[in-house]
């Protein structure tokens, strides 16, 4: 298996199937948190870590526990609980280890449990059938790569959007459109722009 597979997986998850704009995952933090650029980057960092580790864990659980016992129908409950436990562990670890790190990332961790992007990417990795295509072990690498790409795409969009939001604050918007409605229109235009990237891979 050549390294291009990983590269393609990252690019396609980041730009062509962008989690926020084209797959509608993680719209809540996208609309809510991304007001200042640093906030957006902090959120992006926390999401990247949890998304990659969470995808790897859920992938392993699916193919080494659920499938051998033929109990894939409980995957939803297993995935959400594993991801939520992971978030708790990470938060606890950061609390104990470093004040600075907690200040930078820890405050976004509770937000992540209900972030549909994490669970959505974990589910998508299973549904894309990487294990059937590349074998279970190499499929794990592809799944991790696409989770990383998805997280990069999330960070990219949330960061770009925070910059636009700063300009929007100063714009003269009709009262009814202020806040979330105009943000959604902006997101729609961004989604149109991302549609143009469809042909790269």
């Amino acid at each position: 298996m050549s390294p291009t597979v990983f590269f393609v997986a990252i690019i396609s998850a980041m730009l062509i199937n962008n989690v926020v704009l084209l797959r509608f995952l993680g719209v809540c933090p996208f609309l809510g948190v991304s007001k200042r650029s640093e906030t957006a980057l902090g959120m992006g960092g926390a999401v990247t870590f949890v998304m990659v580790v969470g995808s790897v864990l859920t992938y392993l659980i699916y193919y080494y526990v659920l499938e051998p016992f033929e109990i894939t129908y409980i995957s939803t409950i297993a995935f959400i609980l594993v991801i939520a436990s992971l978030v708790q562990l990470v938060e606890m670890f950061i609390k104990k280890v470093s004040k600075k790190l907690y200040k930078a990332l820890g405050i976004y961790l509770p937000l992540i449990v209900t972030n549909c992007a994490i669970l959505g990417v974990a589910e998508t990795n299973i549904r894309e059938g990487y294990a059937e295509e590349f074998g279970v072990m190499s499929g794990l690498g592809v799944a991790a790569a696409s989770a990383f790409g998805a997280a990069l795409g999330f960070t990219l969009v949330i960061f770009a959007f925070s910059s636009i939001r700063e300009r929007l604050e100063a714009a003269n918007v009709p009262a009814a459109w202020k806040g979330i409605p105009i943000s959604l229109i902006v997101a729609g235009i961004m989604a149109l722009a991302f549609l143009g990237l469809e042909g790269i891979v």
């Binding site: 007001k35 594993v82 708790q88």
Partner: peptide, 30 residues
């Protein structure tokens, strides 16, 4: 596993002084 980690995490004290953690807007957003 989830209950255990949740309780353990809740019992770990926060190293920070209380501060306004997230933008208010993120709460109204979802």
């Amino acid at each position: 596993l989830f209950f255990g980690t949740y309780i353990m995490n809740k019992r770990t004290p926060e190293p920070l002084e209380a501060e306004e953690v997230v933008d208010k807007e993120s709460c109204t957003a979802c």
